[in-house]
Every structure is written in C-alpha cells, then in structure tokens.
C-alpha cells in the first residue's frame, strides 16, 4: 500500500512539475479575474430599492404587450417570476454579487475544466510511451495494474484539485471584487409551470458537482484512448472534440429514441435541474447514471486489459 501511495506521488510529481500544468492554472486565474472585471465594469446601476425597480420593469413589459411589441405569452414567465419576487420578498440577484459571479464562473468555465483535465489525462499514459519512460516504469516491482491504477487515481485527484482551485479562486476573486456577502442570494426559477426558489451558492455547488461527473467521464475517455492507442494527440483531440460538438450532434439525433443510449447524451446531469430539459423525452437522472456506469465499466475494463496484456515496443 505504501508503494501504491508512492506511485501516486510519482504521478503527481510528474503532473505538477510540468510547466504546462502551471500554464493552465495561470490561464484559469486570468480568466476568472477577467470575468470579475467585466462583470464589475458592465454592472447595471440599481437605485437601491429593488421593489421599485421590479415594479417599473413589470410596467414596462405590460406596456410593450399592450402596444403589441411583444407576445403576451413570451413575457408571461418573466412577469410571473417578478410578481413572485415581490410577493415573497425575494430580492433579485444582482450580477455584481459574489453569488452571481461564482455562478457565471461555473457556467463559463465548465468547458475549460474539461479541456484542462482532458489535456492532462490524455497524456498520462501515452507520453510515457512517447518518451520511452514506460520501459523504466514497467521494469520495476509494481505490477502493470498498480501502475495504471495509480495514474488513474492521480488523474482523479488532479481533477479534484482543479475544481477546488476554480471554486476557491472564484470565491476569493468574487469576494475582493464584489464583497464577501450575499450568501443567501436566491434565484427564482420557472419549472413545470411553477415558480421555485433556489439558493444561488448552493445550486452553484450542486452544478459543480454535476460538472465534476461530466469532466471525469471525458477525462476517463481521454485516459482510455491514451492507454489503448498510445497517442496523446488522438486522446486529447477526440475527447475535446466530442465535448464541444456533441450538443450539436445530440440535437440532430434527438428525434431518434435510441439516441438516449449514447453516452454523451447522459454525461451532462445539469439537464435534470429545475427548469432544464433532457435531450430526449423520458430520460431521467437515474437512467443517465445507469448508462454512465455501464459505459464506465466497459471503458475501464478495455483500458486495463489493454495495458496489462499488450507488449511494450516503445
């Protein structure tokens, strides 16, 4: 066991002694600060009395409907939401608040997390083959199984570190820009014809958790391709391509019922949040978890089997 921990420490040393990993953290930090600066710069001025503002907005919308500028149905949701806020005394979330900023960071940076983790995961095994260091790694006492497993565990921990960095850094940057307050900020969401309230910070954390699952699945695919094909470019390229373009493909395929069995239609669990809809009718959270679990088992079995059985000719 102590040797297995040694293997994980080795993998971590190799990941975090690489310049590229620190460049990713640098890009992430720059991104988060930029989002904060833009949010602060473009924030709308509010008079301080949100009730008056909301009532004014409602009146404006109603006037537009009377003039025939917009369809009544189109603004009905907005009007209901605003009325609900007034009735329940829930202040709308200001864009220049810590909670709102953290939510936007989560929303905008989820693809970056997939990108960074896929880059790291896609190189974990194939670079060892590329540089020939795999020969040293496999001619020591640890079995091939522990070597590969330590790499996967290290990838998992790296993913956790990246998520903690995004959450922690956005909290600090958000706090500095917008003040460490408003932790109870609530958003009002229209779900199935009903209005529900959400603690914004709590829902942001929930979505980070759901994105973690999605990131891990893409990372596992990158890791698997890296191990099976021993090709870094293929591993990174394919997983990033799928993560970026699958929504389009999914839209085209959504009329076919079988498309709900495609892994990539099930990785984004935020579609089951209140107010969102899954790609194919009838999909449920439980269904997606089962589909992911089955794919996960198949992918890992092939990956480990391939790594343990094949000859090393690098």
């Amino acid at each position: 066991m102590s040797k297995f921990i040694g293997l994980i420490r080795n993998e971590h040393m190799k990941t975090f002694r690489r310049l590229s990993t620190w460049i990713m953290f640098g890009i992430a930090a720059a991104l988060l600060i930029t989002i904060a600066a833009f949010t602060a710069y473009y924030a709308e001025d509010s008079s301080g009395d949100w009730r008056a503002d909301t009532e004014q907005q409602m009146q404006d919308l109603q006037k537009q409907v009377e003039n025939g500028d917009v369809e009544a149905a189109a603004v009905q949701q907005d009007l209901t939401t605003m009325q609900y806020q007034l009735d329940q005394d829930i202040a709308p979330v200001q864009s220049d608040s810590l909670a709102s900023y953290m939510e936007s960071v989560m929303y905008y940076c989820a693809p970056f997390l997939i990108l960074f983790i896929a880059i790291i995961a896609g190189g974990l095994v194939s670079t060892e083959f590329g540089t020939g260091t795999i020969k040293l790694l496999l001619t020591k006492t640890p079995s091939r199984f522990s070597v590969l497993t330590s790499k996967y565990v290290s990838m998992f921990i790296t993913t956790v570190i990246f998520f903690i960095f995004f959450i922690g850094f956005s909290f600090i940057v958000g706090g500095i820009f917008f003040g460490f307050n408003g932790f109870d900020a609530k958003s009002v969401i229209f779900d199935n014809g009903e209005t529900v309230t959400n603690n914004l910070l709590a829902s942001t954390m929930r979505d980070y958790g759901l994105n973690f699952v999605q990131t891990l699945i893409y990372a596992t695919i990158a890791f698997a391709l890296s191990t099976i094909f021993r090709n870094t470019a293929l591993a990174i390229g394919f997983s990033i391509f799928i993560s970026m373009f699958f929504p389009t493909i999914s839209f085209i395929l959504s009329r076919y019922d079988w498309s709900k069995y495609i892994l990539f239609n099930n990785v984004d669990l935020t579609v089951y949040n209140p107010g969102n809809v899954p790609a194919v009718d009838g999909m449920t959270l439980g269904f997606s978890i089962v589909v992911m679990a089955i794919y996960f088992v198949i992918i890992t079995v092939i990956t480990w089997f391939s790594f343990m059985k094949r000859d090393v000719t690098a």
């Binding site: 040797k3 040694g6 293997l7 420490r9 080795n10 040393m13 190799k14 002694r17 690489r18 310049l19 540089t131 020939g132 260091t133 020969k135 040293l136 790694l137 020591k140 006492t141 640890p142």
Partner: peptide, 19 residues
C-alpha cells in the same frame, strides 16, 4: 530515457519510490 523536465535527483526519487 528519463523524465527530461525533472532533475536527475527527482528522477532517482521517482524510481526509488517504486522499489
């Protein structure tokens, strides 16, 4: 073939942990 971006010492630490 060693890990080029690591120092010679860290390379040895790496392999020492495996034994």
């Amino acid at each position: 073939e060693m890990y080029k971006y690591l120092s010679g010492y860290l390379n040895l630490v790496h392999f020492a942990r495996m034994s």
